[in-house]
Design a protein around this nucleic acid. Structure first.
Lengths: 221, 221
DNA sequence: CGTTAAGAAAGTGCATGCAATCGCGGTGCC
DNA sequence: GGCACCGCGATTGCATGCACTTTCTTAACG
């Protein structure tokens, strides 16, 4: 009945749709304000409207899309002040994660963090932007994981995915790569020293730095 | 076709279902682990399975229900360590809100906070548990609002509703009312003084206190 | 008597269909 | 010429139906 997708599919169709659409939003293929037509999406993914509707509902619950009754769904448009508020939250959350990581990371986690951070110097030297970005995501994930607090991790991951569309192009800015590495270094050093306060401060500063770098691309609304 | 509900309804049926089911979970009418049968819910609310399904999907996105493919939905069971992690997050979030409130609240907000806090002494004296609980919700909402950061407010509100089922009966404990008021007083005093650090500390302590009071009801898992 | 396998019942997952609502274009009226 | 009103197309909201998965039952075999 359906395409090859059925053969590979791991979860339900709805789940697949949620991930697919969320991915298109997060990676920027769908831009804030874009209309999300149920039938087009259904045709595009070769499913009926029902799972698409379901997916849009869940995405709306995750605040990734806006949905007004009888008026359809659009990719969430985030006002300038709300965006600022999200970066502010992100800074606080990352600061908490860094602080807890400094206090709670196991020896193995610390070692892995240090090793990957050290390896990333190569990426900076080669100016490998997309590789560095992938590493950057893993680096931060380690921090969230290292906090050993599932719920804080959830909140942080959620905020990160909501910020993703606005943070995408930041590494294109000249020198941002090296600067990012320096900031990471400060965080890693503090965590390895189990210096919770410095780790928190460094993490906060890092997000603030990302925030201003990203603001360039946000533009006024 | 449908009942009187149609006449009052403000949003869509799905929205109504989300709120209705969430309310039953938060107020404890539905307990963690309870099965959420689509057809029973549909019959109970006089709608078809479709909006119920949709609502369950959204609630699952909000982590209020668990949903396993082809196996139905249940009210989310929260493991002991995850519950602890949620209280920990709540403490951090409230601390942030208190700190920001101390820095950012307008004169009007400060006045309102102080006035209602002062008025609540009466409820403590009369031991008016349910009234105090309602006031308590408002009090904390003021803190979240006063932080002037929409996204932190969202995160905090979300965490609060997820914790609600576990926090419900805490005021029944003897002396909890008076103790709660004392803790509120410390927060209010710090905020009025614009003492961000003390406000954060007091808020963190308050949540920790609520946490241990609630743990009594959580029971081991 | 315990274990396991086959079948039936229950319940979920998705597709389709119809009704209701919104938006838009045209027409009539002021 | 501008404004309001009406009707049509487009799209969403919800109900129903069918297929598939899971699970409970029951019976046969070891």
């Amino acid at each position: 009945m359906a395409s090859d997708r059925k053969l590979i599919r791991t979860g339900t169709t709805v789940d697949h749709m949620v991930r697919a659409i969320a991915d298109e939003i997060i990676t920027g293929r769908l831009k804030p304000g874009d209309r999300l037509d149920e039938v087009s999406l259904a045709e595009r993914y070769g499913v009926s409207r029902t799972p698409v509707r379901d997916a849009l509902g869940q995405l709306s619950a995750m605040s990734l899309v806006d949905r007004r009754p009888n008026r359809g769904a659009t990719v969430k448009v985030i006002a300038q002040d709300h965006l600022a508020s999200m970066f502010e939250s992100m800074a606080e959350l990352e600061a908490i994660c860094a602080r807890l990581s400094a206090e709670r990371m196991t020896a193995a986690e610390r070692a892995a963090l240090e090793a990957e951070h050290f390896a990333s110097t190569k990426l900076v030297r080669e100016n490998a932007e997309s590789d560095y970005e992938a590493y950057n995501v893993r680096f931060h994930s380690r921090l969230y994981e290292g906090a050993h607090s599932k719920h804080i991790q959830e909140l942080t991951l959620m905020t990160r995915s909501r910020l993703a569309p606005f943070r995408r192009a930041q590494f294109r800015l000249g020198g941002r790569l090296a600067r990012s590495w320096e900031e990471h270094d400060a965080i890693v050093t503090a965590i390895l020293r189990a210096d919770a306060t410095s780790a928190a401060t460094a993490a906060r500063a890092h997000v603030a730095s990302v925030s201003t770098a990203s603001a360039v691309f946000a533009g006024p609304h």
